[in-house]
Amino acid sequence: MSTDSLHRKSSTQTFLPPVYVITLTEDMDRRNHVEDLRKNAGIPMKIFPAITPRTRDAYPPIYDARYRQWHYGYDLTPGEVGCFLSHRALWELCAQSQDPAWCILEDDVELDPEFSAKLQLALAHVTDWDVLRLMAERYDRKGLPYKKLDGADTLMHYVRPAMGTAAYLIRPAAAKRLLAFSTRMTEPVDKVMDQYWLHGLRVLVLEPFVVQIRQDLPSAISCRGWDAMRNGKRPLWRQLQRDLRNGRDALAGLLFSLRYFLGMFSHY
């Protein structure tokens, strides 16, 4: 394990992963909340200042504006671009580490009192997953049991994407693969992570969830009022385009999952 990691040894000789919190450093409400997290979680955490492009002109060269306009009719928001770049920057650091996994949090989460114990449990089964979400933001979707862990905890596979990057564990090899998979920015970062049928990673969810989103901290990436297309004013052909795209992804995910759960592939 790397000498500069934030591992903390327990009485059972297990280790916690390095924990990084992506935060908007200029937002005092979020900074104060992160400081409370650091005090109350009982585990070391490192702050990672969020990357925040302010205008469309500040988008990076990897952003594919032509693709977005053709397939969606609107750009990613500055918040979505910043979120993508922030997570990708941490993937780059993680990929260079010798740690079993890293934990990446966003700054609007609330942690379960058993958060530390659940991280240790997840690491005890680190060979069973590549990316492990600690919550799913689509509460209306249900997963398939992948593996039963100790007690009531289960690793779940969501055929329909669980969505969200508020809290997850990621292994260095998975971070390296996601880096290679995301050299062109066309989608929000959680959709990139969810395209398991393309990058081939085991993206699972730990249930019951050990993280929740604070509702009193407004999302930094959901403000879409600057584009009328994002206020429900899509022409019919754009709605059909969206439905076809979603249907294609749903079918690809279902076929991939069926092959895996039927044992046709030896690796996810």
Rank of each mutant, 00 (worst) to 15 (best):
R88T: 03
L149R: 04
V210F: 07
S11E: 13
Q69G: 08
A122N: 04
V34S: 10
L217P: 03
P172S: 13
L105M: 09
V211A: 13
D108N: 10
Y260M: 03
R184V: 14
I104R: 02
H267E: 15
L254C: 07
G164W: 00
P113F: 10
N246W: 11
L206Y: 11
M163Y: 06
M163W: 04
Q69A: 14
Q195S: 15
M135N: 08
A174F: 01
L179V: 02
A167M: 01
K46E: 15
V21S: 07
P161G: 11
T154E: 13
F181C: 05
F256Q: 13
R30W: 05
D216A: 10
R177W: 07
S11M: 13
K46M: 11
S2C: 14
L204A: 06
W102P: 01
A167C: 10
R56Q: 15
L16F: 06
D112F: 06
L134C: 10
T14Q: 13
Q241T: 00
M156V: 03
Q120M: 11
V81K: 01
I213L: 14
G151W: 06
S97L: 04
R171F: 01
L134M: 10
V192Q: 06
P53M: 09
T12I: 13
A117K: 04
L119F: 08
D190G: 00
Y168L: 02
N246F: 12
Y260A: 03
Q215A: 14
I43R: 01
L236V: 01
Y20V: 01
W226Q: 12
Y139I: 05
L24E: 08
T25N: 08
T23L: 14
Q13N: 15
Q215E: 13
T52L: 14
Y168Q: 01
T3K: 05
P44F: 03
L144H: 14
E35I: 01
P100C: 07
T154L: 07
D150R: 08
D99C: 07
D153S: 12
M163H: 08
Q98H: 10
V126C: 12
A220I: 02
A50C: 11
V109L: 08
K176T: 00
G225C: 14
L251P: 06
D64F: 05
H71N: 08
W226H: 13
W197V: 02
E137R: 03
E114Y: 12
R66I: 12
